[in-house]
Design a protein around this nucleic acid. Structure first.
Length: 277
DNA sequence: TGACAGGTACATG
DNA sequence: CATGTACCTGTC
């Protein structure tokens, strides 16, 4: 169980901002600057001090999993520079959410967690997802982290008893979780197939799944398929757009990556109280 | 107490 | 296609 440690200097990554961004539900700061996160069956402990990161994993795992997960190939500073300086609202959001990235998360986990997210708040979503993993996920162990539960397999959730699922406090979403899992198991919205589709085709495919509407589909598109032109509109974003972009958000200016700006805007919305108006 | 939380399914005009 | 309502659960 010898794990190498990877030391990297990464400008433009702030793990705390990522952890508090609401796009992932299994990433926590255990001690100051020390983060533990899970994605699918993977687990990782990372240390951050300024621009310096220590990933507790092998070179192979870093290259095979986490480099993509954190989207380290994309230069976010370049995206930030495209922001219209005259757009004070967006400029401020981008400044406030400095170090935020759009993760490339596990497809099935993203689908299920965002089905759970509907009409729900972040602390409760995290609790539900945690319960789901404990109840249905494989037990695993990793040095530095200890025992943990992987995200449940498709077949397990598809076969789960709906009453059992309810014990994870899913409420009416339990049925959605089970049915969507069963659909995935049958080969609907197959990941490999989705990856070959256009944005519109992939989204249409996702919308076939029970419990998946426009908003959840856009989240899966953005956070799992990395279709960064997907711009999920939830109640926060809707209100923000109405208030600050009464004539419409300038999607044309940010075509091809507007979803990344959505994340900055969303972050600034859910951390509003700390933000000067 | 009732509205609301990162919506969606389902039923109507 | 636009609008309306019920829905688990927890919190303020």
């Amino acid at each position: 169980m010898n794990r190498t440690e990877i030391i990297k200097k990464i400008p433009g990554l702030n793990l705390k901002t990522v952890a508090d961004s609401g796009q992932c539900f299994r990433m926590t700061e255990n001690d100051p600057g020390v983060f533990i996160l899970f994605s699918g069956a993977h687990a990782l402990r990372i240390f951050q001090k300024g621009n310096l990161f220590r990933f507790e994993c092998s070179e192979k795992e870093f290259a095979g999993v986490w480099q993509d997960y954190f989207d380290l190939h994309t230069d976010y500073r370049k995206i930030v520079r495209t922001v219209d300086p005259a757009d004070a609202w967006l400029s401020d959001a981008v400044k406030q959410a400095d170090g935020l990235r759009v993760l490339k998360q596990d497809f099935f986990e993203t689908l299920i967690t965002f089905i759970i997210s509907q009409q729900n708040n972040i602390p409760r979503i995290k609790r539900c997802v945690g319960l789901l993993c404990e109840r249905y996920g494989k037990r695993k162990r990793r040095s530095g982290i200890g025992e943990y539960s992987a995200f449940p397999e498709v077949e397990v959730l598809a076969a789960a008893d709906e009453k059992d699922l309810l014990s994870c406090n899913l409420g009416y979403r339990a049925r959605y979780v089970k049915e969507a899992s069963a659909q995935i198991e049958k080969g609907e919205a197959d990941l490999r197939a989705l990856q070959k589709m256009s944005d519109a085709e992939a989204k249409a495919e996702l919308l076939q799944l029970t419990g998946v509407g426009t908003k959840v589909a856009d989240c899966v598109m953005l956070f799992a398929l990395h279709r960064i032109d997907s711009f999920p509109v939830d109640t926060h974003i809707r209100q923000m757009l109405a208030e600050h972009y009464p004539d419409g958000f300038p999607f044309e200016r940010y075509e091809g990556f507007s979803g990344i700006l959505q994340q900055f805007l969303f972050y600034s919305e859910i951390h509003k109280e700390k933000k000067p108006v």
